[in-house]
């Protein structure tokens, strides 16, 4: 019997309510948008807190630069824009005006990964972890479900540091109960097991869990599943613990196989002397196939069945 995961809403839907909760108690909270309040489902926020939302227009570089200035004056700034444009159109502003200059802006990349599906590669952000991981003084997060999304926004707000948080717009099932401990920089072990560990981030955590259930039911394998919501700084302890205790590791991410979670894990493991069966599942280095998010996931093997197959083959190689 496969475990049931209760239905949740889109992580995107959690953004507006969380920010409203924060803004109600803190007049310094500011949401800054680039013709993106509709895409960010922030219209209700804008109506309720009309003096805590700043519209910049379609100008992501300006969005990030202005946000840096606002933050330098003590405002608690959430810059919200599609991840594809926010992360790399404004890359130099993120690097210089925010990270290098210590302006603790929270960058919220909406409709991330391939959420925009058939709108095509201009609208995909499959390179944001890679680009932003290389920038010092910036945390990079991809929450998996509604709970992780809310907690990452709330905790980022408490931190006096720059943070990038990206998520999608498809409804996500609930993967945690409300009492789960959530700490930026610490992975969450959702499922125990020591045959293999699947370390996933963002919307890939759910198919990773399905794969684990699948392997348990079909083959009696015990699969550890970790939600590595913080891609940087990576929870190296949890990763190395998995390498100690499991027979292999698979990483899964809605990102290019280059420069993301998988390569971050590989680098840590190898440099700490761990050599074990290891696979990176993500979007390969090619023109991404066209289609909806789920068609793209299917195509590249980011489904419960496909991850299970990769996992099964991985532990069976000697």
């Amino acid at each position: 019997m496969s475990k049931e995961y209760p239905k949740g809403k889109a992580n995107l839907e959690v953004l507006s309510e969380t920010l409203q909760g924060l803004a109600a108690n803190d007049r310094d909270i500011l949401v800054v948008t680039s013709d993106s309040r509709g895409s960010g489902k922030l219209v209700p926020f804008g109506e309720r807190f009309s003096d805590q939302i700043i519209e910049i227009g379609i100008a992501e570089q300006n969005l990030v630069g202005v946000s840096a200035g606002l933050a330098s004056a003590g405002k608690k700034v959430f810059a919200v824009s599609p991840a594809c444009f926010l992360a790399t159109r404004a890359l130099e502003q993120i690097k210089n005006d925010i990270a290098y200059s210590d302006n603790p802006v929270k960058l919220i990349g909406i409709s991330a990964g391939v959420s925009y599906g058939a709108l095509g590669s201009t609208h995909h952000s499959l390179h944001d972890y890679a680009a932003l991981r290389a920038i010092n003084n910036l945390a990079v997060l991809a929450p998996a479900d509604n709970f992780e999304t809310r907690r990452s926004i709330e905790q980022a707000n408490e931190m006096n540091l720059p943070v990038y948080i990206r998520f999608g717009k498809k409804p996500m099932p609930h993967l945690h109960d409300e009492n789960t401990e959530f700490v930026i920089g610490k992975g969450i072990r959702i499922k125990d097991g020591d045959d293999l560990a699947i370390i996933a981030t963002g919307e890939c955590v759910f198919p990773a869990l399905l794969a684990a259930d699948n392997l348990e039911n079909g083959h009696g394998l015990k699969i550890r599943v970790i939600s590595m919501h913080t891609v940087k700084p990576l929870d190296k302890d949890m990763l190395m613990e998995a390498a100690e205790e499991c027979r292999g590791i698979i990483t899964v991410e809605e990102h290019s196989v280059h420069g993301g979670l998988g390569e971050a894990c590989a680098s840590c493991l190898l440099q700490n002397g761990y050599g074990l069966p290891f696979r990176i599942i993500g979007i390969p280095d090619e023109y991404t196939v066209s289609g909806s998010q789920s068609e793209i996931f299917n195509h590249y093997g980011i489904t419960g069945e496909s991850i299970a197959e990769t996992a099964f083959n991985l532990i069976n190689i000697k």
Binding site: Y116, G117, A118, L119, G120, S121, T122, H123, V289, S290, G291, S292, E295, H299
Partner: peptide
Amino acid sequence: MCRYRSHYVGHPT
């Protein structure tokens, strides 16, 4: 248009 594997995606290519 906008289907799996179609070249006719939602922006010009």
